[in-house]
């Protein structure tokens, strides 16, 4: 899959403002970003549901503007909203979906049984979706997207709204599919999901890609990989009274090799660094180590926060 300068506008609203990315066969690729970042719009263009306003997009090597049925035949889609057929049982949902793809009835039924087992839904074959739990419905939607044995599976927020157990089951199945060689493309606003499943990911905000790469490498490149957190403890701590902020800014400027970035947080300061323990020693030597301090690994959440000033998940 390959996108270049991809744009989607609705009147004056620019949902996707010129993005480019490449996804290799067999890879798991993640779009990460808050609501409104343009992830879902990008997905809709990939799944040939809305045409791009401008730019190039090739999926499975085919142009999304010209080869819609050919692309859809080789792709599976799990949409963000529940769209199971409430008039049909779980089994019928899979069989009919297979028939829409042009499978023969026998083949569709065989795959339906196999996929119900794969998604641990064998006992729910005769139940209609309204009698399934949220996790079961999502698994059924994923099973349905696999009925045409797609080379590419596209998932828009596959685990949003699921409880932790249900989420882990979905992750395990997706990892299994990836190991079988199915290309996965997914959107998420969960860090853990992106880190666990994606080989590579891009961070999106306001319709643009603001960073991209392998999760760990990305964090290391942008932030150094570790973070030293300082706070003076207690309620309302970290006030500017003693000029700690100014002194830290001065410190950061003098040690630009050690301090990649200085961030003010609600509770204190964060110093992003390639070498946490070393930085802490230098801070101590200069009398800047506060009473409460710790070193931890930086993650995608930190990266997103420092780049946009916003949190990924709405809390």
């Amino acid at each position: 899959m390959e996108a270049r300068d991809l744009v989607k506008r609705y009147g004056d609203l620019v949902a996707v403002a010129g993005v480019g990315f490449e996804v290799a066969r067999g890879e798991c690729f993640g779009f990460l970003g808050p609501n409104g970042a343009g992830k879902s719009t990008t997905i809709r263009m990939i799944t040939c549901r809305i045409p791009p306003t401008a730019g190039e997009l090739r999926v499975l090597g085919l142009d999304v503007r010209r080869r819609v049925p050919a692309i859809k035949a080789r792709m599976g889609v799990v949409s963000q909203e529940d769209n199971l057929d409430q008039g049909l049982t779980s089994f019928e949902n899979l069989v009919l979906h297979g028939l829409y793809y042009g499978l023969g009835r026998g083949e569709a039924e065989r795959r339906a049984r196999e996929l119900l087992d794969f998604m641990a839904l064998g006992e729910k074959a005769e139940a209609r979706p309204q009698y399934l739990s949220g996790g079961q419905r999502r698994r059924l939607a994923i099973a349905r997207a696999l009925v045409n044995e797609p080379e590419l599976l596209v998932l828009d927020e596959p685990t949003t709204g699921l409880d932790p157990q249900a989420r882990i089951l979905v992750w395990e199945r997706l990892a299994e599919l990836r190991d079988r060689g199915v290309t996965l493309v997914l959107t998420t606003h969960y860090m853990e999901e992106a880190t666990r499943l994606s080989d590579r990911l891009v961070l999106m905000d306001h319709g643009r890609i603001i960073a991209g790469g392998r999760a760990q490498a990305l964090v290391r490149r942008e932030l150094g990989g570790e973070v030293v957190e300082l706070s003076e403890g207690g309620a309302g701590a970290g006030g500017e009274g003693d000029g700690l902020g100014a002194r830290l800014a001065d410190f950061a400027a003098r040690h630009d090799r050690l301090v990649r970035r200085l961030e003010r947080t609600r509770r204190g300061w964060q110093l992003f660094t390639p070498a946490g323990e070393e930085l802490l020693r230098v801070l101590e030597a200069e009398g800047l180590r506060t009473r409460h301090h710790r070193v931890r690994e930086a993650d995608l959440e930190d990266l997103f926060l420092t780049m946009t000033g916003r949190e990924l998940e709405e809390r």
Binding site: D85, H97, Y100, Y101, R144
Partner: peptide, 18 residues
């Protein structure tokens, strides 16, 4: 119902059906 509530048509549109 199939357009807006159950969205069954949305699912059909994932397949090559026009």
């Amino acid at each position: 119902d199939r357009l807006h509530w159950t969205r069954a048509y949305d699912a059909m549109m994932a397949s090559p059906l026009a």
